[in-house]
Amino acid sequence: MRHIRPILAALAACAVVALPVAAQQDPIQNAIGARKAHMQLYAHNLGVVGGMAQGAIAFDAAVATRAAQNLERLANIDETSYWIEGSLGIEGTKALPVILETPDDFLAKQDGMKTAAAALVAAAGTDLAALQGAMGALGGACGSCHQAYRSR
């Protein structure tokens, strides 16, 4: 009977390890998680250039350029596997099912993001006024997709 305690402990350890693994095997939740992680990376880099544009952080062309380049890379990542059947319009996501009904427009809006991010890279290396102008266009690109394809 003294063996039971270690066996129980081992079982409990397995359960703790197994739970996240099970979650990772749900393709719907995987896709939602990937989208949110991607958006978090946008937000992190936007915080740098946005903070400079707002005057909260001192303008530094090199730092701004690195963040802008990250945003451009993020805009150019293929997102096909993020937006899968069953992962839209459900609990835990604001993304709308209409994304899969109008894929061409959805991709056109991502192209808008690529264009705005490329312009931001050029502006980031110029000066603060250029950065501020390019941030407006980038915000417009975020907004145009969120307006059509996110519930709020």
Binding site: M39, A43, L46, M135, G139, H146, Q147, R150, R152
Partner: peptide, 24 residues
């Protein structure tokens, strides 16, 4: 005031749905 102009929250999420219209 910044959010109402750019749509960016302090965390750099951006407004969606009808609120994106309002910001525009």
């Amino acid at each position: 005031a910044g959010y109402l102009m750019t749509g960016f929250t302090p965390e750099f999420d951006s407004a969606g749905g009808h609120m994106a219209d309002v910001v525009q």
